[in-house]
Amino acid sequence: MRIGTFKETYVADAALFDSQTQKIWLVVAVALVLIFPFVANDYWLYLACLVSINVASATGLNLLTGYTGLVSLGQAAFMGLGAYTVAIMQARLGTPFLLNILAGGVVAMLGGIVVGIPSLRVKGLYLAIVTIAASFIAHFLFANFDFTGGTGGLSVQPASFFGLPLDTSFRLYWVIMPVTILMLFGAANLLRTRIGRAFIAIRDRDISAEVLGIPLLRYKLMSFGLSSFYAGVAGGLWAYFFRVVTPESFPLVMSIFFLAAIIVGGMGSILGGILGALFMTMVPELLKFVVDALPGGNEMTVYLSPIRTIVFGLLIVGFLVFEPHGLAEIWRRIRRFFHLWPFRN
């Protein structure tokens, strides 16, 4: 039972969906997800799969940076660990694709725990530098070992489900979208537990959290591990989606992309990770439309990559200055406006 904006019990306060309206919107969202692949063309299905993969990885980074306050620029490297694990297991062992994706998440999680060990002694900019160093080390390993295919990388055979090859965006949609939704619900439920509250306490004031009995190293490593697991699963899905994995597939700029996504979407918010990944994935596509519409658009295509990087930088600066809580806060303001309308002053 609710009294105003407060609840009478802890269970009600911790509920994942605290109103009938939220449950209705959830049903509507599920219906749209189920209907979408039957009405969309290949281009939009491709974008839907790519957005889903980016949402999964951005959610993992949000657990680490948004909820635990640990800055990381190594998300692309952990995605690479997951992708290479999937490619190697698919090529050499022929194991089921769901097992490969899970293994990719576990391998990335182990790598994240190793990278997270210095987090007890360093944080902020220094921790970001540690994760950048991990990215360069991962790139070196990917490019210089025979079992990773060297600089040429590895090809990935299509996943199959009961003999049906998942070789189109339509078929992969039914794998990528459910996995992403499960990961989102997992993250949302995690934040309602003792672990999630410990993450938030460490973010807000790590020294006070330690005084209250929260073991910092354990929970920081747990946060790094969970974030990397999400990245590894996303990397495994990425490998099956693009069907080729090379050292250049996961550059440092991809890590910056995910950091930009959670900043633009709103750090410390599951919705923020979704909106940020959606927005940042669609920006390059919108830029393509703009460039193609301009006179001499074909000649300007070569400048699309640097233009995209500049736009990403401007978006980060703009949101930090004008809306530091991101798109999620804008959405909350819209909800509050219509909640109070027409009695709003």
Results as ranks from 00 to 15, higher is better:
68 T>Y: 03
224 F>K: 01
181 I>Q: 07
215 P>F: 01
196 G>Y: 11
103 A>G: 13
218 R>G: 09
91 A>L: 11
344 R>L: 12
304 L>C: 09
125 L>M: 14
47 L>V: 03
8 E>V: 13
101 I>L: 15
115 V>S: 00
300 M>T: 09
304 L>E: 06
309 T>S: 10
237 L>P: 07
234 A>L: 03
142 F>S: 01
79 M>Q: 12
173 Y>N: 06
190 L>P: 05
80 G>W: 08
268 G>M: 14
77 A>S: 03
340 L>F: 10
136 F>I: 14
45 L>Y: 14
12 A>H: 14
170 F>G: 00
158 P>L: 00
289 F>L: 12
43 Y>K: 04
101 I>Q: 03
213 G>W: 03
122 V>S: 02
126 Y>V: 10
264 V>E: 06
31 A>Y: 10
50 L>S: 09
60 G>V: 08
329 E>R: 08
155 S>Q: 04
173 Y>P: 00
317 V>K: 13
50 L>T: 05
131 T>W: 07
265 G>D: 08
131 T>D: 03
288 K>H: 14
304 L>V: 04
43 Y>I: 10
241 F>T: 07
314 L>A: 15
14 A>C: 05
6 F>S: 12
71 V>K: 03
69 G>H: 13
241 F>K: 05
8 E>P: 00
239 A>P: 04
153 G>S: 00
251 P>T: 09
181 I>V: 15
227 S>M: 11
288 K>P: 00
168 T>Q: 04
205 R>G: 04
24 I>T: 10
197 R>E: 07
82 G>S: 06
178 P>E: 12
119 S>V: 04
121 R>D: 02
230 Y>Q: 07
71 V>F: 13
88 I>W: 15
5 T>N: 15
72 S>D: 09
16 L>N: 08
157 Q>N: 06
32 L>D: 13
74 G>H: 08
47 L>G: 12
241 F>P: 04
337 F>G: 05
137 I>R: 03
56 A>T: 08
64 L>Y: 08
263 I>F: 04
295 P>G: 06
141 L>R: 04
296 G>V: 04
126 Y>M: 05
309 T>E: 12
344 R>K: 15
287 L>F: 08
282 M>P: 06
194 R>Q: 11
210 E>M: 10
55 V>H: 08
128 A>V: 01
241 F>L: 13
130 V>M: 06
100 N>P: 07
287 L>Y: 11
268 G>F: 05
326 G>E: 03
150 G>W: 09
307 I>A: 15
215 P>G: 01
158 P>R: 07
103 A>Y: 10
296 G>E: 06
227 S>W: 08
212 L>N: 12
178 P>C: 01
163 G>T: 02
92 R>P: 00
237 L>N: 03
29 A>L: 09
295 P>T: 05
250 F>Y: 10
299 E>I: 07
306 P>S: 06
248 E>P: 01
234 A>S: 13
229 F>L: 15
32 L>S: 11
330 I>Y: 04
